[in-house]
Nucleic acid binder design. Sequence first.
DNA 1: TATTGTTATACTCTATAACTATA
DNA 2: TATAGTTATAGAGTATAACAATA
Lengths: 151, 151
Amino acid sequence: MSSRDDLRLASGPGAEVTSRLGYLLKHAQLQLGELTSAALAPYGLSGRELAVLLSLAGGEPASQQEAAQRLGVDRTTMVALLDALEAKGLVTRHPHAGDRRRNVVELTPAGQQTMRAATEASDDAERRFLAPLTGQAAGQLRAALQLLVTP
Amino acid sequence: MSSRDDLRLASGPGAEVTSRLGYLLKHAQLQLGELTSAALAPYGLSGRELAVLLSLAGGEPASQQEAAQRLGVDRTTMVALLDALEAKGLVTRHPHAGDRRRNVVELTPAGQQTMRAATEASDDAERRFLAPLTGQAAGQLRAALQLLVTP
DNA sequence: TATTGTTATACTCTATAACTATA
DNA sequence: TATAGTTATAGAGTATAACAATA
C-alpha cells in the first residue's frame, strides 16, 4: 500500500494511532521518502546513496568505517552502498598510504557533479514536502528534530 | 549499529547529511523506536502491535481491511499482526454477520487492559524522547507533523 | 466480476558472526 | 590481539500475485 492511500482526518476512527508521535514520524518519513525517490530517479541515485555522497564530501577524505559512522549505518552496510556508487563511477576506493587496512573513499568529479545536482533535486523535494508549513514553522521543525537527534 | 553510536555535532564532518530532513526524521524515528520498544517489552508488545490495538479500539469494530487502512499497512501485513495478537489472547476474529467475507476484529478484555497499560508506558517513552524540548516546542513539533502527514 | 482474508514469495534495509589482511 | 574491509546469513518490515470463499 502506498503511504498516501491510508491517511484520514485525525478526528476519525483510529485517531488514537494517527496522532501518536511514532506514527507521525514514520509517515512523515515515508512521504518525504517518496518525494525524494522520485526527485532523484533522473540521477540514478537513491536517497541513501545521496546521503553517502554528502557524508563523503563533507570534511576530510574518509575511510569506509568513518563514512559509515558519519551516516549512522553499520560498516557492513556501507560496503554494498559503496559497491553501487563505485560501479556508477561516482566514488573511488584506494588503500590508505599509512594504514593499508583502510580504504580511502573519495568522490570522483562525476560524483561531485552528480551530488550537486541531486542535492538540488532533493532540496526541492524537501521544500514541496514542507509546503503546508510556514517558513517559520518549517524552521522550528528542523530545529526541534536537530535537538532530539543530536545528543 | 545502534542508532546512538553515530551521532555527532552538526558542525563536524558529515554535517551536510546530518542536517538533512530525511536524516533527521529517520534518526528521530529510530531513537523513539528504541525507547518505545524498551517501554513495551514488559507487556510483550511491539510498537506496531500497540498501534494495531489502538486502531481497533478507536471507533466501530473493524474488519481486517479497515484496521489495515487505519494503520496505513497492507491487508496482507495485517494478517500476521493479528495472528500474533490473537495468539496472545488480545484480539478475537469473528465472521461478520451480514458479510461473511469479512472478519470483525475486536479487543478482548485482556487486550483492552494491555492496551491501556502499554499506552501509558509508550506515552512515557514519548515524554522522555521529547524531554530536550520545551513543552511549547514539543507541541509545535507534533502539530507540524500532523499538518505534513494529514493531506 | 469484485472483495476479503490468506498464503507464497520476494525485495529492501539492517545487523551479527566469521573470514582475510593488515597493524 | 585488535582493526578494516568483506562475505554469508538472518531477521524485520513491506509489498505483489494468486488462491478460496463469498458477495
